[in-house]
Every structure is written in structure tokens, then in C-alpha cells.
Design a protein around this nucleic acid. Structure first.
Lengths: 204, 204
DNA sequence: GTCTATAGAGGGATAGAC
DNA sequence: GTCTATCCCTCTATAGAC
């Protein structure tokens, strides 16, 4: 029982650290994030943090892999659903994907950026690619528009859905739009994106 | 005359430093870039670098503003051209923009990332927005598709053109495509992007 | 598991000679 | 303008008591 109490305390500490670390890493990037800041904001002793995770790098890897897993595990079932049509997949991806990104808006650009700066951080983990390449979604794209590499369409739709989040700081930091209307624009886009995509691949 | 010789030597040093700094900052990000590395790779003494630029931050600002200026000064004339149709602008943007990005492929994601992490680095400089909002291009988008906020279309086309470059490290680092075929895919996209955009806004 | 204290390395910046 | 030498702060990580 004492062990249980200890384990709970520890578990809570670990979770709190991971939660804060995720936020800090995504806000500042890996290099600019200080272990002291993570420990302070998590109200955990710095040494204790290293006791649990060993190093800043190890903590980073753990936290990021969890986030990426969440990202992929969410869309893969949609991509591989044998029962939904291509048009329905467009709808589902827009609806669900944007909703999820809104919960963690900095994740996409952060992941892309860190991969570019330090591929070793991710290297062997992201093996989901073949699952995407061989998905039902890709097959349906190929069928709808046989003349175009379906990867092109895959990237285009990802771009349409994600790019506004990439542009967000640029737009809001300079008053092109207010932070308030950003969410409204995203919701409007949630409606428009599948319609555009259907036009592009040539389905009704 | 002696002054000229000195000035030339200095000028060359400054240019070399800026060139190397641009590459390093874009590869590693601001925080992870070390002034020592910049100085070494530019084959310039570290102290001399500070003599010329005062600080790492100052060097960063100078280099980045030059890059962003290049980015904007390139597309603004196209956006504001009164003589070209919307369809022609789509063609010109695809053709020219992608060509330019190929020369400095890391710039877009880097700029977006740094803006997010440290808006103060850019804050007051990017005032080009109103020039874009009030451009002929935006007016033509509004005319072609009155029911949709033209900003939505602006972002969509930027996303279609830029997103492949964002995804490049993800794709190539995991063998989805080889680095070699990336360029071929980009060229194919250069052809397809304006066609897609015309479908989206509903012009022939 | 949790703390205090500190080691140890790294990196930005400058003093001062030439 | 250019160099050497070095200061000094910051940050990661660990030793060791509780």
C-alpha cells in the first residue's frame, strides 16, 4: 500500500512534467526550452525531473512520440475505412482533423520544424508511412483521378487543412485578422475544404 | 586608397558572415545556432563578428529581414499587376514562386516557426500585409467567388504551393519518396496547382 | 522519491594588443 | 579591422543527504 501511494505520487509528477514539457517544447522549440523552466512550471524539483527522465533529450523524445502517435492514430482509421466513399473521407478528415488540431494547434508546425532541424530525434519511429501509402484513401484518390499521383492529392489536402494554423502567428501578430475571427475562419474552412477537394479530384 | 582596401576586406567579411549566418539560422533555428559555428564556417574570427554586428540577435534580425524582403518583394508585383487576369496570376505565382522557393527551400517553414517562437524578432517589420489585402489579386478573387472570403483562397493557394516543402523532410527522411523524385513531384505540382485553383474559385 | 548544492561544459560577449 | 585570451553567465546533469 505504501508502494501504491509512492507510485501515485510519482505517476502524478511524471504526468505533470510531460504535460508541461509538451507545452514548453512546442512553444519554444527544443533548443530554446530550458529544463529549469519545465521543472519550475511543473512545480517539480529539477533533480527529480532528471531522476525520472534521465535527460532533456529523453524527455523530449517521450513527449513528442506520444503527440505524433496521437496525430497518426487519429487519421489512420479514417484513411483505411473500407466502407466510406472518398467524398465522405474528405468530410470526415476536415471535420475530425481540424477539431483535433484545435486542441493542440502548435503541434503540426512544431513536428515539421523539429524533424527538419534534427531528424535523429524521430528517425526510426515514424514507420506509419507505408500504412498511409497503402491505405484505402490513396486507392480511392487514384481511382477518382487516375492521371494524377495520389500523393499529390494527399499533400494538397493536408496543406489545405493545416496551412491556416501555420499562418496563424503571421496573421494575428500583424493584425491581418484578430485572434477572435481566426476560429470563425477555421470553421468556415472546415465546411469549404471538402468541397474544394471534390472539385480538384473531379467527383460530385 | 588604403581606406578602400580596408573597406573591401570588411565588406567581404560582412557578406560572408551574413551568408553563413542565413544558412545556419535556417538549418538549426535561432536558439540552436552558435555564434562560434557561424564564425568558424565563415572563417572569420568570433570577436570580429561581434565587432561588425554587435550581437547574435542583431545579426539574426539583419539576415532575416533581408530574406523576408526578398520573399515579399517577389510576389507583390505579381499580386498587384492590373493587366493580368486571375487565371494568369495563378500561373505566374505557381511558376515564379516555386522556382524561387527552390533556391531557398527552408525559408518558409523557418520564418513561420521563428515568428511563432519569438514574434518580437519580426514584430514591427512585416507591414506588407495591407499591401496584400488591398491588392488587385484579392479583388479578383472576390469577383470570381463572391461567396467566399478571398483570404481563404489566398491561404489555400499558398498552402498548395508551400506545403510540399514543409513535408519534404518528413517524406524523404522516411523513404516515402527519394530526394531525387521530390523535384519531379514539385515540377508536376507547378503544372497542376493553377488548374486546381481555377476549379476551386470556379473559373475556366 | 524528493530535496540541496554544485560540478562541469558551453556559449555570448568583451578587453586590449596589434 | 583583426586577432588572442578570457570573463561570466546560463544551463544540463549529478552527487549525496534525507
Amino acid at each position: 500500500m505504501q508502494e501504491n501511494i509512492k507510485a501515485e505520487g510519482s505517476q502524478k509528477t511524471v504526468e505533470k512534467l510531460k504535460e508541461v514539457a509538451r507545452i514548453e517544447f512546442m512553444k519554444n522549440g527544443y533548443a530554446a526550452t530550458k529544463t529549469r523552466d519545465i521543472a519550475n512550471k511543473a512545480e517539480v524539483n529539477l533533480a527529480l525531473m532528471n531522476y525520472h527522465f534521465g535527460s532533456k533529450e529523453k524527455l523530449f523524445e517521450i513527449v513528442m512520440l506520444e503527440s505524433i502517435d496521437k496525430l497518426f492514430s487519429f487519421i489512420l482509421p479514417t484513411l483505411n475505412d473500407e466502407k466510406t466513399s472518398l467524398g465522405e473521407k474528405f468530410d470526415l478528415l476536415s471535420e475530425g482533423y481540424i477539431t483535433m488540431i484545435l486542441l493542440e494547434p502548435n503541434l503540426p508546425i512544431f513536428v515539421l520544424n523539429e524533424i527538419q532541424q534534427n531528424p535523429a530525434h524521430f528517425g526510426n519511429q515514424i514507420k506509419m508511412n507505408s500504412a498511409i501509402i497503402n491505405s484505402k484513401y490513396i486507392a480511392q484518390l487514384k481511382q477518382a483521378d487516375p492521371d494524377t499521383d495520389p500523393i499529390q492529392h494527399l499533400i494538397t489536402y493536408l496543406g489545405i487543412l493545416l496551412f491556416p494554423f501555420f499562418m496563424r502567428p503571421v496573421m494575428t501578430a500583424n493584425g491581418v485578422i484578430e485572434e477572435a475571427s481566426f476560429k470563425a475562419a477555421i470553421q468556415e474552412r472546415q465546411r469549404l475544404a471538402p468541397l474544394w477537394m471534390k472539385k480538384i479530384v473531379g467527383i460530385v
